[in-house]
Simulated scan of single mutants.
Amino acid sequence: MTDARLLPAATVLLLRDGAGGLEVFMVQRHHQIDFAGGALVFPGGKLDARDRAPELLPRLSPNPLIGGDLTPFAIAAIRESFEECGVLLARAAGSDALIDAPRLAALEARWRAPMAKGEIGIMEMVEAEDLSLALDRLTRFSHWVTPDFMPKRFDTHFFLAVAPADQLALHDGGETVDSIWINPQAAIDDAVAGKRSVIFPTRMNLSVLARDMTTAGALARAAASSIVTVKPWLEERPSGQVLVVPAEAGYDRTEAPISELR
């Protein structure tokens, strides 16, 4: 066991219906990043203390399934999506429509870089631009906690969201160096074939997405599912150590070689 502090984090799985079925947006992390360097992951990151600002609460589109302690994680998911791939789940105050591409371009030019650098929080943009964050566009998907034995540990909530049709998702060129819209099963197949690096939690969550062919199906499945916290543990097998997850979490398998963790 390590003394690594558990860091709260949020991840967003942006979805769209492609010509061949369901696609999810993924980014490739820079090889020099200490955690999951070079891996294909979903956009996300650590909570900022400013994601917890009570002043943000009146600026949130309500979601009856995301409230209380989950609210800062949902805010962080929206913020990280904006910072990492330029997708913003927000509306002009009083509007039912998500912001369009021209408005997004103006917001990016003014706010994206200083927010990504941590110079400001999302509240500054929301107040100055009179926005409402679209928490109602998020669906809870999973909850993973990094095992005790890892040197860097996260308490991560995963959310699904359909990507706005007129917003172009693209990697930031800093922490992430490439990006792709990909069918979930294709991403798993590439990982198995050694074409892409996909770490264990990402691969397991892709396996659930791969059960559905449409965004509507994936959202409906997630909304109907109970969230079971997954904190993998180690067990010995004749072939060596394996990672084990609780069967009630509903994944296609309950264990995997420890090599998949990295």
Rank of each mutant, 00 (worst) to 15 (best):
D136Y: 06
D51G: 09
L98F: 13
L133V: 06
V87Y: 13
P54G: 03
R112Q: 10
D136R: 02
I120R: 07
P54I: 12
I66W: 04
A39W: 09
P62M: 06
P72W: 04
M123K: 05
L88T: 11
S61I: 06
R112G: 02
G68A: 07
D69L: 08
W111M: 10
G44R: 08
R140I: 08
L104S: 10
L65F: 09
T71E: 05
V145W: 15
P62D: 11
D148G: 09
P114I: 03
R79A: 06
V145C: 10
R59W: 12
G45Y: 12
D51S: 07
F82V: 05
S61V: 10
S61H: 02
E124L: 08
R52S: 04
F73C: 08
E83C: 13
L135N: 01
G121W: 00
L89D: 12
E55L: 05
E108G: 07
L56H: 00
M150F: 14
T139S: 06
M123V: 12
T71M: 06
R110I: 13
L65V: 07
S61C: 05
S132Q: 11
E55P: 01
D69F: 03
L47P: 05
E124W: 08
A74G: 04
T139E: 07
V27T: 11
G121Y: 00
H30V: 15
A74I: 09
E124H: 10
D148A: 09
R29F: 14
L98M: 05
G121R: 00
V27N: 10
D48T: 00
G44Y: 09
G121N: 00
V87H: 15
I120K: 05
L89A: 12
R50A: 01
A77Q: 02
V145G: 11
F141S: 04
G44A: 09
P62Y: 04
P114M: 01
L89M: 13
H30L: 15
P64W: 09
K46M: 12
P64I: 14
A90G: 00
F42L: 15
L70Q: 02
G121K: 00
P147R: 06
D136Q: 00
A90P: 01
Q32R: 15
S142M: 08
N63C: 00
R103V: 10
E108P: 13
L40A: 11
D130V: 11
K46H: 14
A77T: 01
M150I: 14
E119R: 04
S81E: 13
L57C: 05
D96P: 07
D34W: 11
P58D: 08
I66E: 06
R50M: 03
W144E: 14
A106E: 15
E84N: 03
L131G: 02
C85Y: 14
A101Y: 12
I75T: 09
M125I: 05
R140N: 02
V41K: 09
D51R: 01
G68H: 03
V87C: 12
H30F: 15
A101I: 14
S95P: 09
P58E: 14
L138P: 08
D51F: 03
G38E: 10
L98H: 04
D51L: 08
A76W: 01
I66S: 02
P102Q: 08
G86Y: 07
I75W: 00
A97W: 12
Q32K: 15
G38C: 14
A90D: 01
P114T: 04
L65H: 05
A49V: 10
A134W: 05
